[in-house]
Design a protein around this nucleic acid. Sequence first.
DNA 1: TAATGATATGTAAACGTTTACGCGGAATCC
DNA 2: GGATTCCGCGTAAACGTTTACATATCATTA
Lengths: 334, 334
Amino acid sequence: MNENKNISIKDVAKHANVSTATVSHVINGTRFVSEETKRKVHQAMDDLNYRINSVARSLRSRKSHVIAFLAPILASETSNFFFMSVAAGIQSVLKQNNYHLVLSDSHEELEFEEDEIRMLSSQMIDGLIMAPASRECDYDQHFGDYPVVYIDRVPNNHQRDSVLVDNKTVSKEAVQMLIGKGHKRIAFLSGPHTLTTTEERYEGYIEALTEAGIAVDSQLIRIGEVTLSNGYQLTDVLLQHDPSAIFVTDNVMAMGVMSYLQEKSIRVPGRIAVVAFDEFQWTRITSPPLTVIEQPAFELGVKAAEVMLERIENANAPRQEHRLTAKLIVRQSS
Amino acid sequence: MNENKNISIKDVAKHANVSTATVSHVINGTRFVSEETKRKVHQAMDDLNYRINSVARSLRSRKSHVIAFLAPILASETSNFFFMSVAAGIQSVLKQNNYHLVLSDSHEELEFEEDEIRMLSSQMIDGLIMAPASRECDYDQHFGDYPVVYIDRVPNNHQRDSVLVDNKTVSKEAVQMLIGKGHKRIAFLSGPHTLTTTEERYEGYIEALTEAGIAVDSQLIRIGEVTLSNGYQLTDVLLQHDPSAIFVTDNVMAMGVMSYLQEKSIRVPGRIAVVAFDEFQWTRITSPPLTVIEQPAFELGVKAAEVMLERIENANAPRQEHRLTAKLIVRQSS
DNA sequence: TAATGATATGTAAACGTTTACGCGGAATCC
DNA sequence: GGATTCCGCGTAAACGTTTACATATCATTA
């Protein structure tokens, strides 16, 4: 039971009286080996408690079977919620295909992100799925020669595969629902437009208003840092311009909104209606429960992983862009 | 600009008119190299856009500078909240020490967990920080020869380093606080006792009661699956036994509790007081805001990473067990 | 001036796999 | 019965680093 020295394929070969090639082929099923020999090899592997060294394997085969997922997973509670679901989706399909997932965090900051990409590029990964921290980034020179799939958001003029949510359509739908209930002064509260998602949601909002013949009031549109306290403050500001509904495109800001309304005992939806983004468990226990847009986070991950595997199979296939549809869940807050 | 062939240390050496040894030593600073030569090497690396192949490096040096974190991060919203904070803590110290973090998910299931360990063991990691899915597990034979640090929970008879929360003390404190406010019938709601954390919280609850001379009523103690809906149902059951307060040791079950109380319009804390575990943003926007026990999740990660690095430095240092203290945050629900 | 030491660098063998070749023997063919 | 095919497996060269050992140059010393 000497654990210091790792037993290698050579030891197994010797113990089974075969060549290293045979052992390797038994392990990988890459060429025919007689049943008898297979048995001997497996016996030897068991006897010696052999475990393959995947580092050596990667070095030689130039494949790691590892896909990296780079996203702002640790940045805040919101994003970690969302992106963890995405990760779960990715994981589920990778696992089936014998790939592994490594999670990497960008902190939603460009500098961090670049660091991580640099690190990943030397780490030998077979592919990278990422949600860029800003639309204004261009990492093409930093990427290694693995495929990249953008998820949830994309950089401005990218040439890669992407898997996104149909933000515009669902946002439009949500605002139209509010309009249908008679709301005319609908506020829009979001984070900075450096993310394509935010931009798209904004477009949906605008389009719904203009199609309904409602003038856009810039006083009712507020952009700010994505935090609870900022949501709180901006709600205070917004209320000075007399909205009858608020459409918040971010989950954590929505907490700020709710916290303000609750603290000031402002009736929801009587005095003001609220529609937010992202379906998490807590949105059901606010009073009243929140009307939200549920993003298909898990499915987003599944799709991205599938696209990635296809891309690995065929490097020259035409570029894909997928749009998954989100779902409006109407509860009592609207 | 031919990207197909990766440029290696040999190419750099040739381009700079030095040996591969020199290039390697320049990269790692492992022996003296004259300024002039250093300059040439750096020049060559820049010219060729050289990126080190860390797989080859790992193979040769038998060090990967990668620490794995295995926990139920994707299992549910609760745990992903908590363990992501832990991960952030780990990450922060690893980053400073030039180590990398890979996140691995156990789904809170033993089978999954074993799979992941098997995979990690062949993946060449320098250490493993893990939160075991159950106290009744023994992976010692599956582990490779890297150090293991248990975090948040431990298996029954382990011999490793561990970094834990002082669950018992803080739980006792919480229950004592309730007792101090006159509560005598305090319910205990938790997940199954297969986790040491749950067990410890239970002990704190019991000790607080007995020290105060309050008889333990088994009808007021409910164990169940850790879900919102189960929290909801068990609250219904508990209320038939007339408690004046509920101590919920799990965050997602707490949502179930709150959702029930809210739906039935039961006054909190007037009719019933609630104390829950884990401080997340949403606990501030329930009505009323929740009294919770805040676990030092980030600090837990920091400590675990520090312990890991020490252990890597010195394999024979005495075993460490750390207990970090949690904090009771009293809000309106109690 | 020969020996010594210090200084700066080079040579080549590992690390544990995968895989392009090749080879011996049995079976098949004409 | 010689040529051909097929079957099952072995040999050894990579993959890109790190690192023990060796070496060449030069200044210093006796």
